[in-house]
Amino acid sequence: MIKLTKENFDQHKTGIPAVGKNWIKVGMSTCGIAAGADEVYKTFVEEAKKKNLTVDIKKCGCLGMCYAEPLVEVHVEGVPQVIYGKVNKDIAIKILEKHVGTKMLVNDYIFDLSLTMKKVGK
């Protein structure tokens, strides 16, 4: 492991590979795990492999919408990025088949809060 210094810090930062074109993030904090995020994460990993889909499955912290855990954020090229809530094994499979596979959003599980919060920009 290289030690970071003030000289090579920026170089290391720019060298970090960009996130893949398609990704799925699963909220894996205590609230998510309590609601079943472990199983959802496992389902995504296994089913994506089975279905031969190119999508990165990642873990992340809590988005704050604890009432809708387990939360899953999906980014697929050509489809708006959305957050699905109250996801279980069946819905996870549906997301892979429909959202990732055929680029269609899945009904009834989207929690669209994109117009409710501002984030501090870079």
């Binding site: 809708a68 959003l105 929690f111 809060l113 117009l115």
Partner: peptide, 10 residues
């Protein structure tokens, strides 16, 4: 595509 959502933020 028409999509029913669970929460639309309003």
């Amino acid at each position: 595509q028409v999509v029913r959502v669970a929460d639309i933020g309003f």
